[in-house]
Amino acid sequence: MSTSTQPVIKCESVYKIFGENAARIIEQSGGKVETAALLEAGCVIGVNNASFEVHEGELLVVMGLSGSGKSTLLRCISRLIETTAGNIHIDGDDLLAMNDKELIDIRRNKMGMVFQNFALLPHKTVLENIALPLQVKGMSTSDSMDRALDMVNLVELAGRENYFPRQLSGGQQQRVGIARSLAVEPDIWFLDEPFSALDPLIRREMQDEFLRIQSALKKTILFVTHDFDEAIRLADRIAIMKDGVIEQIDTPANIILSPATEYVARFTREVPRERVLSCQTIMGKYDDSQDMSDLTVSQEAIIESVAKPILTQQKPVGVTDSEGEIVGVLNSKIMANVLFGDANSLPVNN
C-alpha cells in the first residue's frame, strides 16, 4: 500500500525506442541501451533515459515541443505503448510486469486520462460518454448514470446531458473528456495536451476550471503540454523535454530563475517574471537590525500585484508567511531588477 513517502509514479531510466531492430539491438548489448548504436540502426528514440518521481497530490507538467517525446513518455507511463527499457512503478507496483487483467484493473480504478482531441465517442451522448468507464467496470446502468450526472455537474455541463459531442463546442467537449476521465475517481490523472486544441480565450478559462477542480480533488497529475506559459501557470514541478531527454525538472520558479540549459533558457527568457514569480522566490534575507517599512506583503503574492507599493517605499518591505511572521525582505532595488533587469542577477531563495 502506498505511504505518504512513497512516490505515486516512479520512473527509472525509461527508454522508448521506435524501430524494428530496437529490441534485438538492446538484447545484443546485454540490456544496456546505447543510443549511438540504435540511431545508427535507423531507430528513433522517443524517450531517452527518463527518471523522475511524482508524489501524491503533485502536479507534474511535462513540457516540450512537438517531437520531444513528451506524449510518448505519458503513454509509457499509462502503458498505452510498451516501454523498451527501464522501470515504472505505480504506487510501488511494477507497471511493466502487469498482465492484461491487472492492467485493465488498474485502469478501471486508478487511472484517468484526457486527450488532446477529446477522443469522445461520436455516437454517444455526453452522459453515455462519461458513463463508459463505469459501465465497462460492470456498474449498473442506473448507478452509472447517477454518477455520470454528478460528473456533469462537476464540469458545469448540466442541461447538456443528452447532447452529442458534435453538438458541443471544443471547450465543452473537453469538459466531457475531463468528466469521463474522473468518473471512476482515479488517483492518477493523465492529461495529454488537454487544452491545445482550444482557442486561447477558452484555453485560459479551461485552465482556471482545471485548477478549480484540482484544488477540490487533489489528484496526482501528469500533465503534458507544449505551452510553456500553461506549464508555469499550472505546475507544481515542470519537466522540460527535448529529443526524448528531460533537460530539467524543477519548480517553475527555479526553472525561470536558473534554467539548466540554453534550451530551457530560450523558453524562460520570454516569460514576464513579475506575473509568474511570487515574492518568496526573490526576497532577500531578513534580519532584525533592518529598518523596516510598515508595509508587509504575503510570500505567496505575485510580484506584479505588489510591485507598485514596494517601489514607492524607501525602506525594505517585510515578506510574511501564512502566520504573519516576517521571513524575508524586498526592496525597490530587487524589484527594479525583477522588472527591468536580467534574471541572472537575482537572488534565488527556495
Binding site: 492484461d100 485502469r107 463508459l132 465497462v136
Partner: peptide, 26 residues
C-alpha cells in the same frame, strides 16, 4: 482515430469491450 482507441483502453475496456463498445460504434 487512435486517440479514441486509447480513450477506450484507458477507460479500462478489455479487448472485447474495446471492439464492441468503442471501435465498432465509432
Amino acid at each position: 482515430p487512435p486517440e479514441v482507441l486509447e480513450a477506450g483502453t484507458m477507460s479500462g475496456c478489455n479487448s472485447r469491450q474495446l471492439m464492441f463498445r468503442v471501435l465498432i460504434p465509432s
